[in-house]
Design a protein around this nucleic acid. Structure first.
Ligand code: MN
Ligand code: MN
Ligand code: ZN
Ligand code: ZN
Lengths: 158, 158
DNA sequence: ATGCAAATGCAAATTATTTGCAATAAGGAA
DNA sequence: TTCCTTATTGCAAATAATTTGCATTTGCAT
């Protein structure tokens, strides 16, 4: 089962810094930019930090938020997500299914494998692939600003 | 300028089979499925086969079609594109900019590098990356059905 | 406590794509 | 060729995700 050479990739399960996002680190940073720390914002940030099922979309975040404060609105969820993304605190992914999904931007870079049957999102990282991408871009005369790598597949049966 | 080892990737400029798509091959295949070869369909297939600027979106295809027959409609363009995609004759890509873009599905697999300044789409292929993807999926217990790899970057200055 | 700009909620707008439906036309039969 | 059936079309309206206008509320510096 173990390959002769060290594995290139690894499952992206980082150290559990569950509460890193909502801890005042971010709130203070936001305050610094002149942004106001409102109740809806704190709530949304908390929800994103709660590593439940990963990569929720805006509607799912909205649902979870409503549970805790029914006065929140969907536009505010979108506005807050955009703000957090511009601040670099979260990342937005658009998988093939339409909606955008979000995740905290702490932890190292990784890409995704989507289970086509269950919708599950599995994270992985491959230094080799990252390097090859850089190399390819460089030889084409380009500098990569960002990239998108998604594998869509099904569990191997048996 | 040439690297010491053979290049893994290569620019995806295949043999120029410009008229492969619209030649009766496809039309007959479609006829076989019971589909009718209508004027709008022939037109759209021609447009896709005319390798002009690559990866046009539905609206662009619609514009080009209107030039040759002003009676065509946008829904018909979408319907025809969907049909061709289901038939495997074309591929649909959704880059970060929203709209979906289409290209004939002849030629070998390749991925894309998008010039963030000009919007230009550069094709490339890397056997190594493809292999690594397979390997990663396999070790995670998955079989890849399809994938998406897009590099977004800018021309290296100087 | 006050005041004001930033943020919110609601309704309406956007954008890309899809769908309902009556009219048209493809193409096999006669 | 002409007929006939039914797939396909064009148009208008519907979707679905996300965004925006605006009057009202709220954070927070004074
Ligand atoms: Mn992730
Ligand atoms: Mn291509
Ligand atoms: Zn990556
Ligand atoms: Zn590929």
């Amino acid at each position: 089962m173990q390959s002769p050479v060290a594995n290139d990739y690894q499952l992206a399960s980082f150290t559990d810094m569950t509460t890193l996002l909502d801890n005042d680190e971010l709130l203070n940073a936001l305050r610094q930019t002149g942004a106001r720390i409102t109740k809806p914002r704190k709530l949304i940030i908390q929800i994103l930090a709660d590593k439940g099922d990963e990569h929720p979309d805006a509607m799912e975040i909205f649902r979870r938020a409503v549970r805790r404060d029914s006065r929140i609105s969907l536009p505010t969820v979108y506005r807050t997500l955009k703000m957090l993304e511009e601040h670099g605190a979260i990342q937005k992914h658009a998988f093939v299914d339409g909606r955008s999904r979000y995740e905290p931007a702490d932890g190292p870079h990784h890409d995704h494998l989507i289970d086509m049957d269950t919708g599950a999102v599995i994270e992985f990282q491959s230094e080799k692939i990252e390097r090859l991408q850089e190399e390819i871009a460089r030889e084409l005369g380009y500098e990569i600003v960002h990239h998108r790598l998604e594998l869509y597949g099904r569990k191997t049966k048996a």
